[in-house]
Design a protein around this nucleic acid. Structure first.
Lengths: 240, 240
DNA sequence: AGGTTTATAGTCGGTACGACTATTAAAGGG
DNA sequence: CCCTTTAATAGTCGTACCGACTATAAACCT
């Protein structure tokens, strides 16, 4: 290693942790794996793994995403770096620095333990999961980040299939934020934002399994940011 | 290392890189160090260094910040993790994963090479600096992040001394965004946001060295977020 | 004193958004 | 087959907020 004193630094293990979020039946779900060894044996944890020698953290994250979800093609999925967790004691065995990512998926099938032996499952997110290591904090940070980015980006479409209704898009906001939104106002706002969604030409209704008037279908537009933003309703609970 | 196969991972060097920003004479400046060895000998680079065995990245960043600026107390300065850069080839010597931070300072004295031998200097930021490694990208990301956070947080006060005028606060926005703002409107917006700033009781003027009516002094308030946000004027240059 | 400079106060019109009502198009039940 | 139910879509109204602009106040300079 020319140029570096070989004792000037401590070598670390570098891993990625993934907060994989999706909407299932109107509720926010997160992909978790059950730990098969100590520490935290039997606890739920975020999927993740080591960064390989020739990988960037982003590459490793996408590889892990494919392995853990069992999906054939994860190239189109939204993957976003959250931040890096590096507290000295966060893994009792050794010094591990973990780069955390959030991944957003349309409703996906139950994973059948792709690469890893440990079982992976979708579990509903309620903000109070006790997870292994500092993973509950990572998950909470992921939720915060996604909720904030819904306000000023077009990120919500990452939770939707290629063609979706405005009602489904609204469900994304309501589920992530945990609030209700007025339907006509939401519709007006989304349609008034150029490039957020564009109508599917012949898009009458999807195969109508439901009651009521079938909704028109839309695709994600080309815009990435919302100007002006779509602000979530201010919390009533002003603490005194 | 119980529980880990000792060959399951590659050890990495973990460093922190700092984009230290300040306002000097109405222009955005960044703290840079001149490299004293290959690679990039003689190039400007962001200050930074290795994360020590018992440090988190945040702790290492604040230590480096103190060393490089030469400031006695950096505990009150705003320090924010940007993201982690981990491309395999970003340092030609070895595998280095770097956690990048942005630090915001009120106008600070010229650093006199605190801990490191390499000279550190404030240089004006114009967005086109060719820096060592991928530091120009880190710096651009820092600028983007700070500009975005000015919109929906009270971050601007981190660039100001403990007591400041509204004109100085406006200068922060104008300098970071590179746009002009209407002074009465800016004033109305800031004062209408509860907790953004609070007036200094006996705060007439600062030692008035300037011409014109002396401005009232304010301190940073307790609020951290701006609801509704203070949006930057939309860019006119809609590319075709 | 008069003019310059900068801070502060106030006005006015347009846009956007929250709350609400009305209409339309499907499914289902008697 | 009509009538109810359900959900999507259309439209209205008042207000908060924001951009653009004008007016006043308080310092300094010559």
């Amino acid at each position: 290693m020319p140029g570096y004193d070989k004792y000037a630094f401590e070598p670390f293990a570098v891993t990625v942790d993934l907060a994989v979020l999706t909407l299932r039946a109107g509720a926010l779900h997160v992909l978790l794996v059950e730990r098969g060894q100590e520490p935290y044996l039997g606890h739920w944890a975020l999927p993740g793994g080591f960064v390989l020698p020739d990988e960037s953290a982003e590459t490793a994250a996408r590889r892990e995403l494919a392995e853990e979800t069992g999906l054939a093609d994860v190239s189109g999925l939204h993957l976003e770096q959250l931040r890096t967790y590096s507290e000295p004691g966060r893994d009792p065995r050794m010094r591990v620095v973990s780069v955390a990512f959030a991944a957003l998926l349309p409703d996906a099938p139950e994973p059948h333990g792709g690469g890893d032996a440990a079982q992976a499952r979708w579990l509903p997110y309620d903000g109070t999961e006790p997870l292994a290591f500092d993973h509950d904090r990572i998950l909470a940070d992921a939720h915060d980040r996604v909720g904030a980015k819904l306000e000023y980006t077009c990120l919500a479409t990452a939770f939707c299939p290629p063609e979706f209704t405005l009602g489904e898009l609204q469900q994304v906001y309501e589920t992530v934020w945990g609030t209700g939104l007025d339907r006509p106002n939401f519709r007006r706002k989304v349609l008034a934002t150029p490039g957020f969604v564009e109508p599917v030409p012949g898009g009458a209704a999807r195969l109508t399994g439901g009651r009521g008037k079938p909704a028109a279908l839309y695709r994600a537009g080309t815009a990435t940011t919302l100007h002006p933003p779509l602000l979530r309703p201010p919390r009533e609970g002003r603490s005194a």
